[in-house]
Write a protein that binds this DNA or RNA. Structure first.
Lengths: 227, 227
DNA sequence: ATGGTCAGAATATGATCAAATTTTTTTCTG
DNA sequence: CAGAAAAAAATTTGATCATATTCTGACCAT
């Protein structure tokens, strides 16, 4: 599947500008974030050059970036793979997510207009539909979209970057959890978040975010402990 | 100056194994962390291939990693440069550092032996000498070494990784501050940290760390505001 | 000012070399 | 002779480089 080759398209020349290494990065990032890659799965350069139809240099660069992101791990020898999380990893991520993301929520709360909140709520409605349908991929995408949309309003790019990096780390494992438990049992404190946003209560927004994080991460920790 | 070419060395074949892109990464990382690169300074691939004596592929990979780290920024067009921090950036970093590093200190406090603390104190003594001598580079290196040594004992690699990433972001700017104010006025809550470690008071360790962070970062914020 | 041209820098490819893994062959023992 | 361990070959994968192409920004002419 080629990523590039949009030359003949007269209409859509908006997105064609990104260089190949950037495209490869985004593609892989997406696959990791939404669990299309299994934890422990090896990632090879040559495999990607073939499946993505680009040379090795762009693939290499994308892989290096993802390693720096913590989304992939370099296995001492020259192999790269999707990370397998340990209980200790999850515990640290719970702490870090709570610290960073509750602050992002708190800041967003002070800056969102009613229209912004409406938009967020619409994402959440679509998310509910995915849960009802048992669509794991759709759930993961919209859950991420919900938090991303919220955090974008915090106007804190560095904190958001830290949060995003953490999401990349647990993406693959989260998918496994969803696959095991189904979408029904998934936590969703989003209604609380939206309610608190409308009430203008920043502390309550932060608190609800913490609960949302903790429920999801606890579920993941349990699933990991089972193995 | 070549980085590689250790082939003929019969004695020192311990460090020769790292691939070139790794070496380039470490070199640049060091330069950024200890302020050998000036904020705003452009970083070119070809310039580095010449000054480091390696091909462009390894240089590219190292640069991509550093961009992901936040240690370099990609300027939309194809330019890469050392980041210039804004007041908002510093403010976010203060929050993030406080959250992450105070926790690292807290965790380290519960795990360090007397011997470990002695070692840390020795780093601090060397650090004092650097301050007395007005050696900015030495100060930066040992200040980093102090915190790194402390955080290593926390046994929390993910949190430490987050902290390290933040240090990479402010490295160049910290150097500028030191250059401007000299080393005399630099904060040093390290004595408090060591004292609290010996007393086994984890909360006090965390508190002292927070103060150390805040003093240093405030100084940086002031220096940035002057321009 | 506006538009075209040009140098220089970044991006991408494929070839080449080196390292690691896997498979096959060989060898040794019970 | 069978089976396991060791050795060696083959294959796969990663690392690096030289080269070709594409893009950007500056300079110059109109």
């Amino acid at each position: 599947m080629d990523l590039i080759k949009n030359k003949a398209s007269g209409a859509s020349d908006a997105a064609q500008k990104a260089p190949a290494h950037e495209q490869v990065y985004r593609t892989l990032r997406s696959q990791i974030l939404f669990g299309e890659l299994v934890p422990g799965q090896p990632v090879t350069i040559q495999g990607l050059t073939e499946s993505l139809g680009v040379g090795m240099t762009p693939v290499r660069e994308a892989i290096r970036r993802l390693i720096s992101d913590g989304a992939l791990i370099f296995q001492g020898n020259r192999r790269v793979s999707v990370p397998l999380l340990t209980g200790a990893d999850v515990e640290q991520m719970i702490f870090a997510r709570n610290a960073v993301e509750s602050e992002l929520s708190r800041r967003a709360a002070g800056r969102m207009t009613t229209a912004d909140i409406d938009q967020l709520e619409q994402i959440d409605r679509r998310l509910d539909r995915m849960i009802a349908d048992g669509d794991v991929s759709g759930y993961l995408r919209l859950n991420h979209a919900f938090h991303e949309n919220l955090y974008d309003h915090a106007n804190a790019p560095i904190l958001k970057d830290l949060a995003e990096r953490l999401w990349l780390r647990f993406g693959p494992s989260l998918r496994v959890v969803c696959g095991r438990f189904g979408t029904q049992s998934l936590p969703d404190r989003h209604k609380d978040i939206i309610g608190a946003l409308r009430a203008g209560d920043a502390e309550k927004v932060a608190k609800a975010t913490t609960q949302d994080i903790e429920q999801g991460m606890e579920l993941m920790a349990e699933a990991l402990a089972e193995d």
